[in-house]
Nucleic acid binder design. Structure first.
Lengths: 246, 246
DNA sequence: GGGCGGAACATTGTATACATTATTGCCACC
DNA sequence: GGTGGCAATAATGTATACAATGTTCCGCCC
């Protein structure tokens, strides 16, 4: 258990198992036994159980009849659906924000982040600050989720964004070269502006439609990452390898 | 622990705690301590922990920083949002089913359930079989969720429907008298028919809109149940009392 | 040869002791 | 009087022994 640091055994085990699942080391359908993992990680069964419970909460594991857990299967289609679902939920948050009105402080923060995102763009792909954009983009989407002031919607949105490669920042830099990524982000940022304008003007239907289409950039990037191969049971591991390469 | 029967300590504790939360006996914000519950239920801490993990999975409890759980707060607004969210997810499932096409066997089963639902209606409110309708309605919605053939969407839909009083069958009989309930169900059944027709004709946008509006019947019934009082921290317990009365 | 039964095994369920960590409140000190 | 730290307390974190429950596979009987 020296692989991942910090916290207690439960947290380390949770992180380690999450990593193995997203890596594809633990393929979908694998049954996890407490004893096996306890031996493997050289700790007792108690933190293993706790970690598996938390991963079931995240949706990475499924409880199986008669006790125990299996790794949930994530095919390419599942990831596409997860991204679509994130778009639907972000769209709902944006629509409700537009319909009910947003807290001024929240709106101000959203606009501030929008300005910061703008600052990441240079005149061309070479001058683009991709890392800063990725970080700010995540915060922008967080703030947007808060704008609807609904704990229930925020909660479920956070859940869906935890699914493998469904988060708003998962595919910011996924294009095969900087020029393609740059173009992709130009479109994304234009949508950010339009989304905020729609919310401010109380145009709920427009806000919802933009948020959905915005998420589909991620879908497009995901499909581009798989353009050369066919989806299959190794989807996650191939995607993880792809993500490592940059 | 003789209150709830069947299964092991974990299951009984899970059911017992769920009941207390939905009843309002454990108000939102209450911190649950393993030791306190263990003493109360006269069992050890282990099944208590396990039960709390599962309820966190259902969204009834929240993990708190530094360990432990608190009961999640469900106000009237939260329930309204949960119902809206269910409508959004059912709408997405219906839209995707229309766009991608449905499995013939699945469609046949949906139509069969639709016929059965039809059979619950008599000429007037007095002849209506409310219990049968409630049961069939739940199965109809289950089958509809399956029609999109997406494990991810089905999974999240099931989750949201688990939130207190957000399920499709929660408010079937919630109106103050049979005549009002009957009218409500006439509208609901008309929407069922329209929804199936839209899916069959591949009219995705229409299917989505109908499913959303369909869920808003539940919202209307929820608000009717609260017409006389103001929402507050006792929302859940008042609603539970209301549900008991019939 | 097929199906039933039972024993051996694997796995999860439960209790409990002990370790570790967070919280609380008091007291000394500034 | 306020603030810092320290001790007491209470909670969760962990390990482990034992119980209960499936599961599997082998042999027996039909």
């Amino acid at each position: 258990m020296a692989r991942t640091r910090g916290g207690n055994h439960t947290k380390r085990t949770t992180d380690e198992l999450r990593k193995r699942i997203v890596n594809g080391e633990l393929p979908g359908g694998t049954r996890l036994t407490e004893l096996g993992l306890a031996e493997d990680l050289a700790i007792s069964r108690t933190p293993i159980r706790e970690a598996m419970s938390r991963l079931a909460e995240e949706g990475l594991l499924e409880r199986v009849r008669g006790g125990g857990f299996v790794v949930r299967t994530f095919t390419l289609e599942d990831m596409i659906d997860a991204i679509e679902l994130r778009g639907v939920l972000e769209g709902t948050a944006a629509r409700i924000a537009a319909e009910r009105g947003v807290d001024p402080a929240n709106l101000a923060e959203i606009k501030r982040l929008l300005d910061c995102l703008e600052g990441c763009f240079g005149g061309d792909a070479g001058a683009m600050n991709f890392d800063a954009y990725s970080e700010l983009n995540a915060r922008f989407h967080d703030q947007l989720a808060e704008s609807c002031a609904s704990p229930v919607i925020q909660h479920e949105l956070r859940r869906v964004a935890l699914l493998p490669f469904a988060s708003p920042s998962a595919f910011v830099m996924a294009r095969p070269d900087d020029a393609a990524s740059y173009r992709s982000l130009v479109v994304a940022q234009t949508q950010h502006h339009a989304l905020v304008a729609a919310i401010e003007r109380r145009e709920g239907a427009r806000a919802e439609a933009i948020a959905r289409e915005h998420a589909r950039i991620a879908r497009s990037n995901l499909e581009a990452a798989f353009a050369t191969g066919q989806p299959g049971p190794d989807t996650l591991s191939r995607l993880a390898r792809y993500a490592e390469q940059g």
